[in-house]
């Protein structure tokens, strides 16, 4: 009120002008990808032992734990000539339907061998329903250095107990 009232709109525009030069919070997503939290619930991964054998024993606990019924597992026996995992059985068929999976992580909690873990990958959109049913090949962890793709004999020990006793840092 008073002589300098005519300055008020100028002050208003001044606020707008000042905001034009403030730092924006926007993360320019496809060009700038911020990393997710370490234990982020992303796409699943089937892990391997250091010699390449799969950790999955085909017990189907993940399928039973899944609240959305998104996992389909068929177990099969290891023979001496065709061995995919240490021990008696392996997961022959392993499919996760990402259009049913709610990424809750109950399957990871259920897995007794830590074969199933979650990566931080989240770019899963696709254009057909069939392509979003991930099969075992798509879910298996890539072969690291020193790993050989199964089937092959047990390299790190005589029985599966040797594998399980490798410890958290070696297996």
């Amino acid at each position: 009120m008073g002589l300098t009232d005519w300055l008020n709109p100028v002050k208003g525009f001044g606020v707008t002008f000042h905001t034009m030069f403030k730092k924006v919070e926007t993360v320019n997503y496809p060009e700038e990808k911020r990393p997710t939290a370490p234990r982020f619930h992303g796409r699943h991964q089937l892990n391997r032992w250091p010699d390449g054998l799969e950790k999955c024993v085909g017990c189907e606990l993940c399928a039973w734990a899944c609240p959305a019924d998104a996992i389909y597992v068929e177990g099969a026996d290891n023979t001496e000539t065709e061995r995919y995992s240490p021990g008696e059985r392996y997961g022959r068929t392993y499919q996760i339907n990402y259009l049913r999976c709610i990424l809750c992580g109950l399957c990871i909690e259920a897995c007794p061998t830590r074969a199933l873990t979650m990566t931080n990958e989240y770019e899963l959109a696709d254009s057909t329903r069939e392509s979003l049913i991930y099969t075992k090949e798509m879910l298996l962890a890539p072969l690291g250095p020193g790993m050989e793709a199964p089937p092959h004999a047990m390299r790190l020990g005589e029985t599966e107990e040797d594998y399980y006793r490798l410890g958290r840092n070696n297996g």
Binding site: L103, L124, S127
Partner: peptide, 26 residues
């Protein structure tokens, strides 16, 4: 897709904003 034809299916419950932007880019 029982009701309308769908172009992009986006998994997630709910999908992150980055996942939605990724589907829009696709």
């Amino acid at each position: 897709d029982h009701v309308v034809p769908v172009d992009i299916y986006l998994p997630g419950c709910p999908p992150r904003p980055e996942m939605l932007i990724d589907s829009i880019v696709k």
